[in-house]
Design a protein around this nucleic acid. Sequence first.
DNA 1: CACGATCGTTACATCGATGTAATTGGAGCG
DNA 2: CGCTCCAATTACATCGATGTAACGATCGTG
Lengths: 335, 335
Amino acid sequence: MRPTVKDVAATARVSPKTVSNVINGIVFVRPDTRDRVERAIAELGYVPNLSARGLRNGRTGVIGLAMPDLSTPYSAEMSHHFVEVAHEQGWGIQFAETLREPARASTLLARARQRLVDGVILNPTTLEESAIALDPTRPPLVMIGEVQQRAVDQIWVDSVAAAHDMTAHLLGLGHRRIGIVGCAGDGFNSETARLRLAGYHRALAEAGIAPDRRIELACATWTPGDAAAAVTAFLAECDPPDAFFCFTDSMAIGTLSALWAAGIRVPDDVSVAGFDDIADGQFATPPLTTVSFDKRYFAEQTLARLVARMSDASAPVTRVTVPHAIVSRASAIRR
Amino acid sequence: MRPTVKDVAATARVSPKTVSNVINGIVFVRPDTRDRVERAIAELGYVPNLSARGLRNGRTGVIGLAMPDLSTPYSAEMSHHFVEVAHEQGWGIQFAETLREPARASTLLARARQRLVDGVILNPTTLEESAIALDPTRPPLVMIGEVQQRAVDQIWVDSVAAAHDMTAHLLGLGHRRIGIVGCAGDGFNSETARLRLAGYHRALAEAGIAPDRRIELACATWTPGDAAAAVTAFLAECDPPDAFFCFTDSMAIGTLSALWAAGIRVPDDVSVAGFDDIADGQFATPPLTTVSFDKRYFAEQTLARLVARMSDASAPVTRVTVPHAIVSRASAIRR
DNA sequence: CACGATCGTTACATCGATGTAATTGGAGCG
DNA sequence: CGCTCCAATTACATCGATGTAACGATCGTG
């Protein structure tokens, strides 16, 4: 049987509460007593039972992270930073995936209500999905990404501005006819897609270019496969544009693949740009021009907001915008 | 204040235990009583406190997953499947990362001992790291990957056989001088690297080819960046071999990038092969020939073994070998 | 030398759910 | 109509850690 405070207390010849005092270190304990207790702990290999502690003080030390799809390189990098930052601060992270069925986000919140997690980081992709955040009984919560809900803390990259900047960058390189990969459509109404498209349109308008729906390619999912399929289908019908601005690096990789298969050279014939700056993007052939942001900082800010929210539910709602930057690589050159 | 069984009991005018009986459904409860309780639960919005339940019956319903590095596309795909399969069976998954400091694996086991998780899936990269599995007080545990420990359940892909098969495949395509990317070295003594190298050597031996250390490139980490650096450095000194067999797809992507930068065409000048069959591999330019295995099946087997281990600590130790297959794509062609 | 102040330690109750053993209510039988 | 017997429900204790409040030892001081 695993030892408990009681056993340690018996071995150290003190009361259970004294053991607790030694462990938590808030109340002062005489050095020799502390010594005895610590020796007893070591001798018995005592480890506190966090379920019991969680029951007693209502905190588990675990936070939940709900991402739409964990299988993408982008998710991997974000997860990595969340786990790292959380670990450094002594938090555990429990993962959940919400894409296949949005109802799962509520499941995760239920878990939180079940007191398995103290707070939740939620990455909704649609407004409807984020509606669960309105539940008054929801646990401490922050949302990451583009979807906005009044009354919920949010950490995001300004997608409108970023898409605008990337479009302006491509325009600055002399491209006029700039195709988009990753528009909403087919029942896929990502808020992110909507905002990035808006930024793109704004930049076009500023340059006096009328948008052309035919070169705004929709993808059912934001995967390289769907992007490649969309681009391949497009190339079968139309001439390639001057450049493709893909709403994620993953789709940019799929686009590169489709162009390569069609015998179209990048960047000589067509420029390609992405979004997210995933690690593999700089090892694509050619390396991807993309929108970059500090993912570690993003995770830090998110956790900081969540911790603040957990300690004060009535603190004013915040919205943190993580700065972005255009990273210019070989996939997009001057025309 | 959140409602408890007591509150529900008071509302339904029954005892707390009856509420518990309704919820757990093991003891028979008269239909009308059950009805009253269920109405009370709905009315109050009662959700059981899992910390309390965990304390009472010693199970939390959460398992821990410790991977070396969560930021890679490979980890992302594996994590995805683990979370999916676990979710389907009602388990939560808590993540941990062990690469930066192997001691963290023990930290995770401590968490388990703290009863925050009921069992652990551990992916060690070195024998030393796996030694923690020998701790007699360790929680139910399964190891995934190449590192083997007597007395611990293991789920793996036979890396020796797979590397042998891939090498034989390349030999069959007419390649004689086959370079390796991802050997151990620089304090990086991955067990996986050792086994894959062994499989490679065996295949060479069968073909009567003497190994050549100069074309066995070491990488400090298994990232595209280090692989690209290693290949670039190599190309500065030597002629390219007939083919590069990279020990992961990520390194293969880095290799493609380095070759592209050096103006060497793939597959015309050099063939390239990887290992893992990550999603982005088929959208590399050119698409990667690689070693593939069913990751979903891998996750299912792992969870099944862990669940078995949790329910019977003294069951015989098992070792599951997940089948692999060579997937031939455009990056490797007949010479 | 006795008495209060102070600091460390203890006993007890508590967090919420659930197993165990005792109890209640009702049906069925004589 | 009363007694037995069984099923449904209840009271109580328990899981392990910790907050509260009461207790006891030690010290300083009058």
